[in-house]
Nucleic acid binder design. Structure first.
Length: 778
RNA sequence: GCCCGGAUGGUGAAAUUGGUAUACACGUAUGCCUUAGGAGCAUAUGCCGCAAGGUGUGCAGGUUCAAGUCCUGUUCCGGGCACCA
């Protein structure tokens, strides 16, 4: 008889699945569909890590589970390939990012196939391929046409060392993530998507989503809706009035001064000859102030502008200050300070010796107009990077932007010698002199050299998967109607950014009539990270990285790796890798294999000698083939129910535990062929290669088994007896007697162990049929 | 500071509406077998105790016949946001 040799079995089945295109998805009108996807990976040079495996395996368990249930399942795979690592590598080595990307994708695909994923490999997408980014550019143009892609001059993080703009997430503790140089703010003209246009709907629709509460809360906080009012304050001396935003217009009688942000547009008009120099110096200093200083030192600073405003409620003259605790990007960039009601204003007032008035509250609408504001800002999408999707815009001689006509898409990324940004503040695209020139409507123009934030590329890929090779449309209307929205989306990152952007684009394209739904993802599974055995984050520098391919090649195989990662703990929690538990899962699969193969009556040469099991279970299992096994029937049905319900609820760890329990039981009572078929079917989502091998041996299909409730109840049941809440006895009772409360209570009271505690009389007895429990109070 | 989570054996963790706390796995111990393997199989394993029994889900209270689960307070840990007026 053969030993369990996972590497051999897995190679065999992977070849079969590949050749048969076993998981190719077609639209089947009338057949219920299921669309599951992971957040597609960035294919790094390091290959798959154990976190990818957890991510992909969750999707695979769901894919196979729903397939086995007869649903038409779409499970695609793709690569998010634009971004800095490939560009950095290009800058360092001179290798084109296109080449690096291709090598990394090939490696990722090869590795993913070694895990046996049930992917429709004909639907692969790659965001940096021209066939794909042509349509990213098309999406940009739709937003542009509707006025939702626009240019604005604003202050951005700038790294003076690398001469480039940085995104917020690329600034770590006030320093450039690449060179570690302190970043500063620089005013630049940049492209934005007007996500704020959808702020209200993005907020309102959160509640109905079947997403983890944690993510929903984070999105709500990110959008940060506040309702209040805008109030105009006239300024003495002819400067334009100042409009403030406040959530507490009822406190206006206590407003004893105004504060504007250093970047406030009308700041200069508020100054006079005496204050201008100090105000300007303060402004420059504030804008330069590093993020570190802002975080560490919240000491209030500010300067008097020289102007006074009139409080419209009190008619009093109040001073106008400039201070960096007021943020330019929120509200109007100006506030009315009410030190009696606001801690920050009080702190400022105390420092600058300004009056603090405990005034009474008034009607909220008395002096202002109701106004809603959001913390969420528009989405800055310009990147001065080479390795990104070119923004399909060109400028005329006056510098006015013009969209590239759709029939001229894609705007291809030009080939250059050096990918590094230069001192011009423009991306390396600017070095492609010929590429820069473009003629639109007979007019010579110059192309935009900024590229799009990578998040734009991933904002619509879930729809591209439904018709990945459509050369006429971003997505096909029939395909999108059948497959989308995504039923289950699985990831471990991007709680606000990506998961908010796809919602924004979904609503936008729904408004244009391109999507028949307004939320892209019905259910979100947000799983935890896998840490190193020492509980710390895995990292190359710490040398504690577990390579999933090593685990496979060590002989454990993909099935063990997959099953272990599902067994490691609750899906939403972080977990620490435990090499010894991997061995435990391997033992479990090995027991499954042996149980199945040992039951074959042709195999008389099982390796074990006269051990209690080998002699007993081997022959017993063989003898029980094709005969109902009343001993295993109850546990079989119980296991089907447990595994089915656990997978529905994403309790993968307890589903695996239930299978282990089942196998342990079969080792005790022997396994019928039916038991083994059910075991193989239930094992399929977790360990598909082994399960396929078992089913082949057993001559069965992989249709998901059903349980029958009538097999879940046994003839005799155990009733527990508590005295004063403490467990004192267990009664074995005929199941039919459970309805006879009187008899069961009598049995409980007559139990020898119980009698010891009831000598002094009984206050009352409680029988709970559902819990099979008698509670006696003495 | 604010908003979310979480705390159960030596370890990772289970536990429908409140109803036998610790399933499953690791580790450990003992034994069996041996084609000698870091394999397989069996039994035991919360803590104290020889036992009867007692005790036990971060801590302190409360509700209840009954609390890991509900309520009040508190400590610690993790995550998110952070001068958003």
């Amino acid at each position: 008889m053969d030993r369990y040799e996972p590497l051999k079995i897995e190679e065999k089945w992977q070849k079969i699945w590949d050749e048969e295109k076993a998981f190719k998805a077609y639209e089947k009108p009338g057949v219920p569909k299921m669309y599951v996807a992971e957040m597609f990976p960035y294919p790094s040079g390091a290959g798959l890590h154990v976190g990818h495996v957890r991510n992909f395996t969750i999707v695979d368990v769901l894919t196979r589970f729903y397939r086995q249930q007869g649903l038409n399942v779409l499970r695609p795979f793709g690569y998010d390939t634009f971004g800095l690592p490939a560009e950095n590598y290009a800058i360092k080595t001179g290798t084109a990012p296109q080449e690096v990307t291709k090598v990394n994708i090939d490696n990722f695909r090869k590795q993913a196939k070694r895990l046996g994923y049930a992917v429709d490999w004909d639907r692969e997408i790659n965001t940096s391929s021209p066939e794909y980014y042509k349509w990213t550019q098309w999406c940009f143009l739709q937003l542009y046409k509707k006025g939702l892609a626009y240019q604005k001059e604003s202050y951005q993080w700038w790294c003076p060392e690398d001469q480039t703009v940085l995104a917020n997430e690329q600034v770590e503790n006030g320093k450039c993530w690449r060179c570690g140089h302190e970043v500063e703010k620089k005013k630049m003209k940049q492209w934005f998507f007007k996500i704020t246009e959808y702020a209200d709907e993005l907020l309102a629709d959160i509640d109905a989503l079947d997403w983890p509460e944690k993510i929903k809360t984070m999105q709500k906080n990110w959008i940060g809706k506040s309702t209040g009012a805008e109030i105009d304050f006239e300024v003495e001396g002819g400067a334009p009035h100042i409009t403030v935003f406040t959530t507490r217009p009822d406190t206006i009688l206590g407003a004893t001064f105004l504060v504007v942000a250093p970047e406030y547009a009308g700041l200069e008009a508020l100054t006079n000859d005496n204050t201008r120099e100090a105000v300007f110096a303060y402004k420059v200093k504030s804008i330069k102030k590093s993020e570190i200083e802002r975080q560490e030192n919240k000491e209030k600073t500010g300067v008097f502008t020289g102007s006074y405003a009139i409080n419209p409620a009190t008619k009093e003259k109040i001073p106008v200050y400039v201070a960096d605790y007021v943020l330019a990007g929120y509200g109007t960039g100006a506030i009315m300070a009410v030190p009696a009601y606001d801690d920050r204003d009080r702190e400022f007032a105390e420092k600058f010796d300004l009056p603090i008035v405990e005034a009474e509250l008034i009607d909220r609408d008395a002096y202002g107009t109701p106004k809603t504001t959001y913390k969420m800002r528009d989405w800055l999408i310009s990147r001065q990077r080479y390795w990104g999707c070119p923004i399909p815009i060109a400028y005329d001689k006056e510098g006015n932007p013009h969209p590239i006509p759709e029939d001229q898409l894609p705007v291809l990324i030009p080939e250059v010698e050096d990918y590094k940004p230069d001192n011009s503040g423009r991306s390396a695209l600017a070095k492609a002199k010929d590429w820069l020139k473009v003629t639109i409507d007979g007019e010579e123009m110059t192309r935009e050299t900024d590229t799009l934030d990578g998040y734009a590329c991933s904002s619509w890929y879930l729809w591209r998967y439904t018709s990945p090779h459509d050369s006429e449309h971003a997505w096909d209307q029939e395909a999108i109607k059948y497959w989308a929205p995504t039923d289950i989306y699985v990831g471990a990152d991007h709680a606000v950014a990506h998961l908010l952007y796809i919602r924004f684009w979904c609503k936008f394209f729904a408004d244009l009539g391109y999507l028949p739904f307004r939320e892209p993802v019905k259910k979100l599974i947000y799983h935890g990270y896998i840490n190193a055995p020492d509980g710390k984050k895995m990292s190359k520098s710490k040398g504690n990285v577990i390579d999933p391919l090593d685990v496979i090649n060590d002989g454990y195989g993909a099935d063990t790796l997959r099953t272990y990662e599902m067994f490691i703990g609750p899906v939403e929690l972080d977990a620490a890798w435990d090499p010894r538990s991997v061995g435990g899962v391997y033992r479990f699969l090995n027991r499954c294999y042996n149980l199945c193969m040992a039951s074959d009556s042709n195999s008389g040469s099982r390796p074990a000698g006269p051990s209690p099991w080998a002699a007993g279970a081997n022959s017993r299992a063989a003898a029980l083939r094709n005969t109902p096994n009343p001993e295993s029937e109850a546990i079989r049905h119980k296991t089907i129910k447990k595994v089915t319900e656990d997978i529905y609820h994403q309790n993968f760890n307890t589903a695996v535990a239930a299978l282990m329990e089942y196998v342990n039981e079969l080792y005790k009572v022997g396994a019928s062929e039916e038991d083994l078929v059910v075991l193989a079917k239930l094992l399929m989502p977790f360990a598909p290669h082994l399960a396929s091998e078992m089913l082949e041996k057993l001559g069965a299909n992989d249709e998901w088994p059903k349980w029958d409730d009538k097999h879940l109840v046994s003839d005799t049941v155990e009733v527990v007896v508590q005295v004063n809440g403490k467990l004192r006895a267990k009664l074995s009772v005929n199941a039919s007697e459970l309805d006879d409360e009187e008899k069961i209570v009598e049995m409980a009271l007559n139990d020898e162990k119980v009698k010891k505690y009831t000598e002094n009389g009984i206050k009352k007895t409680i029988f709970v049929k559902r819990a099979k429990l008698v509670s006696i109070v003495v």
